[in-house]
């Protein structure tokens, strides 16, 4: 075995560390991409009995995005086990209590019900912002591509870019702005 093949062997069976930026990402869409890496489904050596999953660090989970009115319509169910112990928490309420929980639940649900789920979840590291401990961030070797384009706020765009952007509307000659009245 040449030295190149030996390194390839190490790289194949070593656990990789991926990073995923959750900014403006739908947790349920991004769970599909994250779970693929957590389980090791992207590797040619994948087998359900083969423990080849990778670590994933999710940052900025505080800034996930949900479509339309889902913040008020999506409810998370919990039952204490006692009579009358059922509770429904809305997504925005859960997210303001714990900014990590929605992302965690989305990935947990996506992993499917099997014996490996709890151990696979141990390889997931979630952070509400971009402050990741140094001992974790120094392992990272690859990045998972974001699924949605992060939209840009107009006050974050420079003024001369806005001014010099091509215009498709011009005011009519008899237009009177409010300030001039």
């Amino acid at each position: 075995m040449s030295s190149r093949q030996r390194v390839q062997q190490w790289a194949t069976f070593a656990r990789q560390w991926h990073i995923f930026d959750c900014k403006w990402q739908n947790p349920y869409e991004s769970a599909i991409a994250i779970v693929k890496h957590l389980k090791g489904l992207h590797k040619p050596i994948y087998h359900p009995m083969n423990d080849c999953g990778d670590h994933v660090i999710c940052i900025n989970t505080k800034e996930i995005a949900l479509p339309g009115n889902e913040w008020t319509k999506r409810a998370y169910f919990h039952h204490t086990g006692y009579p009358g112990g059922a509770s429904w928490t809305l997504a925005w309420e859960l997210h303001s209590k714990d900014p990590v929980m929605i992302m965690k639940k989305a990935i947990y649900r996506r992993l499917g019900n099997n014996l490996q789920r709890r151990y696979t979840m141990q390889r997931l590291h979630l952070f509400p912002d971009d402050n990741v401990p140094k001992e974790l961030i120094e392992n990272v070797t690859s990045q998972i591509r974001q699924l949605r384009v992060v939209p840009q706020r107009i006050d974050h765009i420079e003024k001369d870019v806005i001014d010099n952007y091509p215009k498709i509307m011009d005011y009519p000659t008899d237009y009177l702005p409010k300030t001039l009245k």
Binding site: W24, E63, A65, P67, G68, E70, W71, A91, W92, P151
Partner: peptide, 16 residues
């Protein structure tokens, strides 16, 4: 600021 708004309005939302 957009992230200081009331209740669910402070969280990121996108539309179709």
């Amino acid at each position: 600021l957009p992230n200081q708004r009331y209740k669910h309005k402070k969280f990121n939302t996108y539309f179709f």
